[in-house]
Amino acid sequence: MRGPVDYAPLLAELGLTAADASHVLAAAAGSHARLAELRRALVGAVPPGCAAFALGSLGRHESSALSDLDLAVVYRRGAIAPVDADGAREALAAALRARGLDVPDKTFHSAVVLDDLLGDIGGRDDSNDHLTYRALLLTEGAWLANAGDAAAIVEQVFGAYTAGAITRGRYLTSLSNDLHRYYRTICVDYRFKVENAGKHWAIRYFKLRHSRKLWHLANLAVFCRAALLPDEARDGWLAEQLPRPPLLRIADALRPLDGLPLCAGLVTAYDAFLAALAEPDTRRALDLLAYDVRDASPVYRRLRAGAERFDEAATAVVGHLWQRSPDHLVRYGLL
């Protein structure tokens, strides 16, 4: 996305007003403004051959002022020494923290070599971290420093799938399978983090039921739609769609399938979720919420009811895809 995400045409098509999606709109405008400000501030922050990305909600243009920033630094082997790439990542994280941003050192704690992300897809050394980088660079990677390197890196990630002469699949299922795999991985990762690593459960739970599910639904919808395109048009359409925010991806997939009105429920349910995550009190309440007493929490009950509305809307979309692109949904989405 070059400029701010423009949801206005979609809202008009759906018969929704700006008030119906005020938090979606605020997140889009705020995310773009944050990205632009950071890009201006980070000029020259990483050396040539290296690129910095914001992944997560900022990369999806769905962030609020409370969102953390998943900072990823990727470089090409030989372009820069690993120690220098790690140093650049550390300096960048420090600069972002100095600006008041929460930059976790989790999956993206050190710089990664692009060749490692692409050299063993599906192999023994293809770690969850590598899968995470590939999936997120393709679907929610917004550059922060070195735009040209960033573009070349994302193109190479996409190209790693399209170039698989034997395994790519007519519908580029080598990629859709990897995106499915990532979604299932984060669902299971929730179990580990909460049960074994002692992490808070509530925000993760509601992210799984909203933003993660929307991301997965968007991939399903896009690939179901792409399967109906002429072979020669498919890769280009996918490459164009995958970096777009999930709501727009779903709309673009459903529009030619006469299913666009089904997006209205998704937009309003998702708007309520973004509204909740933008409230400091709600986040605090979720951070403190013990699992055993969750039903006594008004915040939990409100978000759970929202998640159920979101599920209804998502189920309706899947039902439509079942009608309009059944072959792809069944053969590649389920089986």
């Binding site: 400029g3 403004a33 632009a36 400000e37 735009a147």
Partner: peptide, 15 residues
């Protein structure tokens, strides 16, 4: 988008 990056819009908070 072909030979060079970025677009001006990516640095302008309100293009």
């Amino acid at each position: 988008g072909v030979l060079a990056e970025p677009s001006w819009r990516e640095l302008d908070g309100a293009p």
